[in-house]
Every structure is written in C-alpha cells, then in structure tokens.
C-alpha cells in the first residue's frame, strides 16, 4: 500500500461522514416513498395470516 498515513486518515474522517449522510437520505426516501406504503402495510399484516402450507 502506497498511501500516506495522513491521506488515509483525512479520507476516513471526511468521506465516511458523506457516505453516512448519502446513505441516510436514500433510506429515508425509500421508507417514506408514497408508492411503498401499500407494500409495507401488506407485509406488516401478512405475518399474521394462516401458515399451514405454502
């Protein structure tokens, strides 16, 4: 590995944070996307249905 230690540390300290923010935005958009509501409601109730056979 030919990276300078300082470069790696700087990269870790900054890009890790940007990654976190980007990731959070994608997850929140997905979770609250109006089109997904029906699917989630279905999944939420589906576990309670009978389950004797596939």
């Amino acid at each position: 590995m030919n990276f300078e230690h300082e470069t790696l540390v700087a990269f870790s300290k900054s890009w890790g944070l940007f990654y976190l923010i980007g990731m959070a935005i994608v997850v929140v958009v997905y979770t609250f996307w109006p089109g997904n509501k029906k699917k989630f409601d279905h999944a939420k109730r589906a576990v309670l249905r009978k389950e004797d056979r596939p």
């Binding site: 929140v28 979770t31 309670l48």
Partner: peptide
Amino acid sequence: RPIFSYRLSILSFW
C-alpha cells in the same frame, strides 16, 4: 397484532 410501525423497522434496520 401487526408490528407497530413497519417503516420504523426499516429505518432502524439500516
């Protein structure tokens, strides 16, 4: 009874 909030479960998963 179904889980209280499915959306919350997704957020907490990630």
